[in-house]
C-alpha cells in the first residue's frame, strides 16, 4: 500500500493534469452552450501544455538559459518548452476561429445552445421531406 502511495506522490503531476483535463472534457461534452464548450476545450488545452512541461522538469534544475563558464548547473529540458510555447499562440488563434464560427452560428440561428440548434435543423429537415412528399 505504501508503494502505491509513494508512486502516487512521485507521479502527482500526471494525476493533477489528468484531473484538470477531465474537468475540461466534462465541460466540453456536458454543456450545450457553444461558448462554454470552447472554454472547456481551452481548459483541456492548458492541461495538455502543463503535462508536456511537467515532463521536461528535472529535479534541482533551472530554466534552460545557459550561464557561461558554469558546468555544474542542471537545466530542464528545453524541447517541450519550445513545442508548448508555439502551441499556446496557435491555440489562441484557433480559439478565436472557433468563437468566430459561434458568432456566425448565433447570427444564423439566433441561439448558441446546441439542443435548440439541433431541434431547428430537425424541424427544417422534416419540412423539406413533407414538401417533397407533397410534390
Amino acid at each position: 500500500m505504501t508503494s502505491l502511495a509513494n508512486q502516487i506522490l512521485s507521479h502527482w503531476n500526471y494525476l493533477a493534469v489528468i484531473t484538470l483535463m477531465m474537468i475540461g472534457l466534462y465541460i466540453a461534452i456536458s454543456r450545450g452552450n457553444l461558448v462554454k464548450k470552447v472554454m472547456g476545450m481551452s481548459v483541456f488545452q492548458t492541461s495538455v501544455i502543463l503535462l508536456y512541461v511537467s515532463m521536461a522538469k528535472v529535479t534541482g534544475g533551472t530554466a534552460p538559459i545557459l550561464i557561461e563558464g558554469r558546468d555544474d548547473i542542471i537545466y530542464s529540458n528545453p524541447l517541450p518548452h519550445v513545442l508548448m510555447l508555439t502551441a499556446i499562440v496557435v491555440g489562441v488563434a484557433t480559439t478565436a476561429l472557433g468563437l468566430a464560427l459561434i458568432v456566425r452560428i448565433n447570427e444564423a440561428y439566433g441561439t448558441v445552445e446546441e439542443d435548440e440548434i439541433v431541434a431547428m435543423d430537425r424541424a427544417e429537415d422534416e419540412r423539406d421531406l413533407r414538401s417533397e412528399d407533397a410534390s
Binding site: 501544455i49 522538469k57 528535472v58 530542464s76 518548452h81 510555447l85
Partner: peptide
C-alpha cells in the same frame, strides 16, 4: 509553468 522552469512558456 514558471515553477516548472518553463519561463518562456509562462511568459506567453
Amino acid at each position: 509553468l514558471t515553477l516548472m522552469d518553463a519561463v518562456d512558456v509562462a511568459f506567453t
